[in-house]
């Protein structure tokens, strides 16, 4: 029982795969600086940013983005209002955001199975740069340009999403 609890806590504490709002410092630094003032969460017009629950261990209450529910639409309102610098205040261009990097699961992605689908390609805000179509068919992520907003993960028609954004500081 105790071992289970410790394992649970350890997993929760070391879980660094969560998506942070744009401009977030590396996970440890972010946790040191975030005072949970909720301002990024309150200014977000799409309600993309939510407060982490208890399952995130010691980082509960800090802002996270669950891309499959509501992705970040890169309006860039939240970085300037962070009072402690947990989000980079000077970040204003959406192309410079590095929240995470999208990974395509080629086993479930529809084009790789022979069904035409361009959902992620057409919805990518860094259009024709971050997601390109190989042979006019197979989507590929260009890591150099991917900002990690999670819109692709949100629009993917496959159950559970065939394209998943992993935190930038964790890949």
């Amino acid at each position: 029982m105790l071992k289970f609890l410790l394992n649970y806590i350890e997993n929760a504490v070391s879980d660094k795969s969560v998506l942070r709002p744009p401009g977030a410092a590396p996970e440890n630094e972010f946790l040191n600086k975030c005072i949970q003032c909720n301002k990024c969460l309150q200014i977000c017009p799409y309600d993309s940013i939510v407060a982490a629950g208890l399952e995130f261990g010691t980082s509960y209450g800090t802002p996270i983005i669950i891309a499959r529910d509501v992705p970040c639409y890169l309006c860039m309102l939240c970085p300037p209002i962070c009072p402690t610098g947990a989000l980079d205040n000077d970040l204003l261009e959406k192309e410079k955001v590095r929240m995470g990097i999208a990974k395509i699961n080629e086993e479930t992605c529809l084009p790789y199975l022979g069904i035409i689908c361009r959902a992620c390609f057409e919805n990518c805000p860094i259009f024709r740069k971050a997601i390109i179509l190989e042979d006019e068919m197979y989507p590929k992520v260009v890591e150099k340009y991917c900002v990690g907003c999670g819109i692709c993960e949100h629009v993917c028609p496959v159950e559970g999403s065939a394209i998943i954004v992993k935190s930038y500081h964790n890949v």
């Binding site: 005072i35 949970q36 003032c37 909720n38 309150q42 200014i43 402690t84």
Partner: peptide, 10 residues
């Protein structure tokens, strides 16, 4: 969304 925050920071 002009006045935002809580008692940590406003």
């Amino acid at each position: 969304r002009y006045i935002i925050g809580n008692m940590y920071s406003i």
